[in-house]
Amino acid sequence: MVSAHSDAARLLGARVRESRLRLGLSQEDVADLAEIHVTNLGKIERGQANPSLTTIVRVAGVLDVDPGDLVRGIGLDHLPPRSHRLTAADLIRERKARS
């Protein structure tokens, strides 16, 4: 069994699946309405895909939810580790400290 792409992908997928089930729609219904392949929707719901912004907005529109609600609260801590953890604010602060 393929594991989730990341915690972020897993959370997004769970929210998509929950919204779909709440409406009583099949994956085929949502995929058809969103104009994506049903296997892609399945991978999204299982957290095995990193959908594009276009796909997230299409799926959200079909499910009648705000795309922001699907990604709300998902942050850097939900992604795989990076070689550095600096944010833009950290970089600016470091540059100001050096000058």
Results as ranks from 00 to 15, higher is better:
Met1Thr: 07
Met1Leu: 07
Met1Gln: 07
Val2Gly: 11
Val2Arg: 14
Val2Asp: 11
Ser3Thr: 10
Ser3Asn: 06
Ser3His: 09
Ser6Gly: 01
Ser6Pro: 02
Asp7Met: 12
Asp7Gln: 14
Ala8Lys: 00
Ala9Leu: 02
Leu11Val: 11
Leu12His: 04
Leu12Lys: 02
Ala14Arg: 06
Ala14Tyr: 00
Val16Tyr: 01
Val16Ala: 01
Val16Ser: 00
Arg17Met: 06
Arg20His: 03
Arg22Asn: 14
Leu23Asp: 09
Leu23Lys: 14
Leu23Cys: 06
Gly24Gln: 03
Leu25Arg: 15
Ser26Tyr: 03
Gln27Pro: 02
Gln27Arg: 13
Glu28Trp: 05
Asp29Asn: 15
Asp29Ile: 06
Val30Gln: 06
Val30Ile: 10
Asp32Gln: 12
Asp32Met: 11
Leu33Thr: 04
Ala34Met: 09
Ala34Ile: 14
Ala34Lys: 15
Ala34Phe: 11
Glu35Gln: 14
Glu35Val: 12
Ile36Asp: 05
Ile36Phe: 06
His37Ala: 13
Thr39Arg: 14
Leu41Asn: 07
Gly42Leu: 08
Lys43Phe: 05
Lys43Ile: 01
Ile44Glu: 01
Ile44Trp: 00
Arg46Gln: 14
Gly47Cys: 09
Gly47Val: 09
Ala49Tyr: 00
Asn50Pro: 00
Asn50Cys: 04
Asn50Glu: 08
Ser52Arg: 14
Ser52Pro: 04
Leu53Val: 13
Thr55Glu: 08
Ile56His: 01
Val57Ser: 07
Val57Gly: 01
Arg58Asp: 15
Arg58Ser: 13
Val59Met: 09
Val59Asn: 07
Ala60Pro: 07
Gly61Glu: 11
Val62Ala: 09
Val62Tyr: 00
Val62Phe: 03
Pro67Lys: 02
Pro67His: 01
Pro67Trp: 05
Pro67Cys: 07
Asp69His: 09
Asp69Thr: 08
Leu70Asn: 01
Leu70Ser: 04
Val71Asn: 00
Arg72Val: 13
Arg72His: 13
Gly73Asn: 03
Gly73Lys: 02
Gly73Cys: 01
Ile74Thr: 08
Leu76Asn: 10
Leu76Glu: 12
Asp77Arg: 09
Asp77Cys: 04
His78Phe: 12
Leu79Ile: 03
Pro80Ala: 10
Pro80Lys: 09
Pro80Arg: 12
Pro81Thr: 08
Pro81His: 11
Arg82Leu: 15
His84Arg: 15
His84Lys: 14
Thr87Ile: 04
Ala88Arg: 11
Ala89Ile: 04
Ala89Asp: 12
Ala89Asn: 04
Ile92Glu: 11
Arg93Glu: 15
Glu94Gln: 05
Glu94His: 09
Arg95Glu: 09
Arg95Asp: 05
Ala97Ser: 13
Ala97Lys: 15
